[in-house]
Amino acid sequence: MRPFHVRGTDRAIMTVKINYDGDLFFTASQDGGINCWLTETGERLGNYKASGAVKTLDLTDNSELLVSGSLEGSVDFFQINGGKSLGKLTADMRKAKWVEFSFGDENLIIVYQPMTSTINYETRILKVQEILDKIKLRQTQDVLEITDTLVTPDKFKTTQASWGYLNQSIIMASTEGELLLLSYPQKEEIRRVQVHDGEIKQFAFAKDFSILATAANDGCKIFDPATLQLLRYFKYEVPMNAVAISPLFNTEQKPKPHLIVAGGIPARETARTKFQGFDIHICNVIYEEEVGKLLNPNQIGPINALAFFPDGKGFITGEEGGYSRVYKFDQTYWENDLFK
């Protein structure tokens, strides 16, 4: 399984996203550039200039609209075809940490740190169409104010807020290792659980929302998204930064009950040790065991982001070193008994 790599920046890649059809993928880096690539060949189609170091991005299902959140404190909107900047939200924002479209692209959730505080994080839900209309009205002024609904639990430093199945719930993760389940649109707290010792770096759902996987300092845990009950636990001695679940996880024919999880010791400490732990682990969720490990010898930094192809035939990584690698599973993955 030999990957090819693409590189559009010198700085660390923070996030990687593949569109619904799987023909394009987007990498966002700390220097504020979002690159669009063709999956088949690795050809770069274009570059979107965001206003600051991009922490997070999301796409609509019809591949028309791209939203990115930057650490400079703005949420930028782009038209994917053509790369036209539609405008940005900046009011009262110190850092934007997470953006995500709801199922059906009607709503947009954003997690950000307000100007008034350095500790608290706020989560808001915006109507996408309203925002776009406002952008059309104020074409000369591209700064918009946030005036929409607000979901902020007390003393909860949010790192990620995602929509549950059919937008009926919202799940949030915190820097203290807690998971919070809110009902939507009632916004009532259903459950709040302490699941990890440290910060939850990222969590991901299976395609059919059957499980939820978290990545944190002490490994990777699998939960039931409806009740937040612990199902499986993969222990790792190095911190894990990213997790992705195979889209073929719960298909009726030939399921692949796998997830990939990756990370590595922080880049600032790599000089002090020869062991790095930059491997990508492929895990079987049913038996709670690791079935394979991938390590690219050219890789020199930890992995920050992972994304599975929609057809489950491969995945893309985003590295601290600025590289993004495209892996395609070879024949043994589909034929060997080990991967069943």
């Binding site: 059919l166 059919d208 059957s210 039931d224 719960n250 009950p257």
Partner: peptide, 24 residues
């Protein structure tokens, strides 16, 4: 686990209409 997954799959299949409505 397969029992758990089958239950989830059933819910997923049953809510197909709602998904269709949301997605368009």
């Amino acid at each position: 686990f397969t029992q758990y997954l089958n239950e989830k799959r059933k819910i997923y299949n049953d809510t197909k209409e709602i998904r269709k409505k949301l997605l368009g």
